[in-house]
């Protein structure tokens, strides 16, 4: 089970022979209006897919940048309901760029998995990443999402052995997300040499395109990852732009989108060295 938009986007990228650039932004950071403007500007700045965070008060796997982004958003009254509203507003002007929501379990538990899945599908979201729902706890959520044609993306990490990769991929669709460092977001740096064989393992286990996240901050690193994976996710470096722009009283949207442009350019210029392997694994 997977969404048409995610599949179509990765098929198009395969045809182009390049990896996806996937920016992560926190919904409602620094406020709803600015965040919506940023979201709408992402495809034009080179985003192939978008990860949209919904804030949680206790984000246990985030480093300081995304923790602070969540607090900024919450302090302006951001909620899961408003996050879905933001997706719906985005869809008024963009029907093609997939949006994957990312956050923590409790706001979803509060809403109820079935209600959330229905509302998220209606808003035009395509997939969901929940940091604190591992495969062992995933079935009720995966069933609810599947019923609405939404993808659940369970994370693979450096501590996932081959047996776990199989368990993870059983309930994963859309694309596979490899967390390149054992740690929180935005602190350790990914190492492309170490990531390459891991990406291969995940590809083999999943038969899906593999995006890499946690630990990519610069265009250089994004390009390196784009040579070995099917997508590169950048999050903390972008929310840091929000924080700095707010601090310096600069145009937040401009700062974030120009950073996205430079990252997207780097990803586009990198050749997808392992495209053949990826296609073979998917075939």
């Amino acid at each position: 089970m997977t969404t048409a938009r995610i599949d179509a986007r990765f098929a198009a990228l395969r045809a182009e022979g390049r990896a996806a650039f996937i920016p992560y932004v926190m919904a409602g950071d620094p406020d709803y209006a600015t965040s919506l403007t940023i979201l709408k500007g992402l495809p034009g700045a080179g985003a192939d897919l978008i990860e949209l965070g919904f804030p949680f008060s206790d984000p246990m796997a985030e480093g300081p940048p995304i923790q602070r982004a969540a607090l900024r958003a919450l302090s302006k009254g951001m909620t899961l309901t408003k996050t879905l509203q933001m997706v719906a507003e985005f869809r008024e002007t963009d029907q093609d760029t997939p949006i994957v929501l990312m956050g923590y379990a409790n706001p979803l538990v509060t809403r109820g998995f079935a209600t959330f899945a229905r509302d998220a599908a209606a808003a035009g979201a395509d997939g969901l990443i929940v940091v604190d729902i591992p495969p062992e706890e995933a079935d009720p959520l995966a069933d609810a999402l599947e019923a609405q044609g939404l993808s659940l993306l369970l994370l693979s990490t450096p501590t996932s052995d081959d047996a776990r990769l199989k368990v993870i991929q059983r309930r994963t669709s859309g694309f596979a997300y490899y967390v390149s460092v054992a740690g929180v977001t935005g602190v350790k740096e990914a190492n492309a040499q170490a990531v390459a064989p891991a990406v291969e393992r995940v590809r083999k286990a999943s038969g899906l395109p593999v995006a890499v996240g946690f630990g990519i901050r610069t265009p250089e690193r994004a390009a390196e990852i784009a040579r070995v994976a099917d997508g590169a996710v950048v999050g903390s470096a972008l929310v840091d732009e929000v924080a700095e722009a707010v601090d310096m009283n600069e145009d937040v949207t401009l700062r974030v989108l120009s950073k996205v442009e430079s990252l997207a350019k780097a990803v586009r210029s990198a050749r997808l060295a392992s495209a053949g392997t990826g296609n073979a694994a998917r075939a």
Binding site: A61, A105, P134, E136, L155, T159, S160, V179
Partner: peptide, 20 residues
């Protein structure tokens, strides 16, 4: 065996920690 007391308990942790 899955760490449940009725509906409560469980193992809601990031994948990195799950093998541990």
């Amino acid at each position: 065996a899955s760490g449940r007391f009725g509906d409560y308990g469980g193992r809601y942790v990031p994948e990195t920690l799950m093998p541990l």
